[in-house]
Nucleic acid binder design. Structure first.
Lengths: 221, 221, 221, 221
DNA sequence: GATGAATGAGGGTTCATTCAT
DNA sequence: AATGAATGAACCCTCATTCAT
């Protein structure tokens, strides 16, 4: 077996290990934030939660910043995976696609409630470059929502003078489920929240002719 | 001059000094948060920004918590003053009162952009009691908005199945001007933002018969 | 009236004021130590307790050291006044003079319990010179006790191979009423303590022939 | 070597390190107190004296309190070990056991002179719980002395109306060797001190019939 | 003479990061 | 690859002391 093959095999093995460790650490971070709040994630606490040594974390992440960044990227990744899937699952109807996309956002947020909040802490950890990257990704992330609104407008089902604002507001309201969870949880479940917000948002932009067709979305359960 | 008068004069002078210093420190905190981000507010940094010594801060605030709390309370205070005033100024029309209230919220937020963001940092500094207090005040603060929506509904001008959600969403969108300023500032001024959001929110809840009457609010400039 | 007379009058007045202020401050210090423990005497706390400003303390005492030193000296002064008086009051009998002296020590300690403890804190406050001075004074202070023991030995009523040790032990046991007050107060009053210690100490040194004569001192109430 | 053996070996090694570091730190604390006085033990100073970093101290002790407590407990531990041993070594004679116990107390105090003094500084460092614990332990510590006195009384060799006071006085006099070292060192060695105090204390309580038997203890060298 | 606002060195503590093993 | 003991800068806070009024 030539040397290069060996190298490739080793590289692959290493790649797997890196993947594994990273996941292990990010999962531990998520558990920690869930349990102790998102500011309680010290490197030693993270190591202990993950069952590894502090030193090891630095083998896979350059700094605490990097870990936090990765936690946030994980959420953005989940958006990138889940939202398109939900849109696809919603069929061809642009309005149902929009509603599905929003619901998917909210569900991802709900699953990563504490990680989602991280973005709102321009922590000293996160340096300027990291912050810019996250902002860019967040905007990219909202693209499916924006596309859905635009498609609705083009199809005539929606009327919005500023489709991008409509989309961005929806993104914000998805985040709000995490940011203001202490408020909403007093009166709503996640599914209540989703249908109420969908109803409200659609009321603002749906074409009058379409109201009957989407009555199920417009009157929240 | 009798002794009591002297005492009163001294008390008054002290009161002025306390007021002055508090303002000086809170202003410095605001500037610091503006310039360095709101987590860079160490007591050393604050002292140096305000041009005083660390020890002096503790003459006017019991702890770092207290300073942060005061910064936040200042914003909530501004709401308590400005929002009712704006509502009054809007006359008797419930919808214009609602629009005026929202605009007032946004303008206060804009003036305290970095302080407003503080609330979203469940900072370890702010202890549980402080956090609860702020949450309670935030909910109280949104009361005028809630009242305005309800009045609109009762007058028949608005139709909302969940008036409280409508009001809370508006509060959130006011906060969003601070939270997502980096995004909105790319395409909007504050006034653009206000009128766009007012138009969108009203579209969702205004009674069809009222649309013509409020056409100026419904089509953003 | 010639200038010098004015000066003398002023000097006298000043002298009185100094005396007054010093007493006021030392009393406040005593109250404070009594109420909050002897380590809680900060200069600001002292000022506030005395009802004066911090600055004023520095007009009458050069430093915190000086205040503490003065508090201790006050106790030593009380010894210098009270112990000889008690000895005198005890008449000519050397053994009753000794017992009276010890009782006087204990009562002074009891009245200045917290100040007495101060001596045992080689506080950084008290500089080397101050410490030496206190040690010297403490030894001087014990002189009446030592003299009383020696007189007893010379009169034949006491037999002690080391009279100075007997005297110093008694001084220590007087201090112990302050140092170990938490222990003794569980089972004794001050007067119990005095008579028990007198009985024990005398038992060790009294001449056998004298036992009947001092039976009242030897069997504690 | 099986994993468990490795683990055990590692655990043992860690145990040794903990032991080593703790000793190193407590020794440094003792040296520092010896040299600079016991209030000069700042964590910085301790770290520097021990030749380690501040942070490291917190790996082995939870707080400054803990360090101080450990220093004191070390002394109390030494009592718990040395005193019973000395009593045993003294044979069956209750009076020689008492004398041996007292001597052991004094020797332990002498070896930890500065640590022993710590107890007398109701330092703000030591919290209420710690202080109570120490008081309890101090009382427990004096138990052997108390038992020895009582045994002497029961055997008829001693006559004491308050055996507990006799025992507590002896404890105090042992402490006094540390508290008043500046005084006693002028005229005595430790052994002088011990035999003088033993002679004096026994004189007070020994039964007349026993005096000849213990003449060696009663007339100090 | 008297005030008390202001100072700032110094204290205890935490935690991201490093490096010898 | 993995460990975790060790580091030390930085944090929040206190309080003896000063000085302009």
């Amino acid at each position: 077996m030539p040397a290069t093959s060996i190298d490739h095999a080793q590289d692959a093995a290493r790649q797997v290990l890196v993947e594994q460790r990273s996941r292990q650490l990010l999962d531990a971070a998520a558990r920690l934030m869930e349990r102790e709040g998102s500011e309680a994630v010290s490197m030693q606490a993270l190591a202990s939660e993950a069952g590894v040594s502090v030193g090891l974390i630095y083998r896979y992440f350059g700094s605490k910043d990097d870990v936090l960044l990765a936690v946030i990227l994980q959420v953005l990744d989940a958006f990138a995976v889940e939202v398109p899937r939900a849109i696809q699952a919603a069929g061809d109807d642009p309005i149902r696609r929009l509603a599905g996309a929003f619901a998917a956002y909210c569900r991802v947020i709900d699953e990563h409630r504490h990680a989602a909040v991280l973005t709102y802490r321009e922590s000293k950890s996160l340096d300027a470059a990291g912050r810019e990257r996250i902002k860019r990704l967040e905007v990219e992330t909202s693209e499916p929502l924006r596309a859905a609104v635009r498609a609705g407008v083009e199809s005539g089902a929606l009327r919005a003078s500023d489709p991008d604002l409509v989309a961005y507001n929806l993104l914000l309201l998805a985040h709000a489920w995490a940011l203001k969870h202490w408020y909403f949880e007093k009166t709503m479940t996640l599914e209540n929240y989703i249908s109420a917000q969908v109803a409200l948002a659609l009321s603002a932009v749906i074409a009058p002719t379409q109201k009957r067709k989407y009555a199920d979305l417009l009157s929240p359960s």
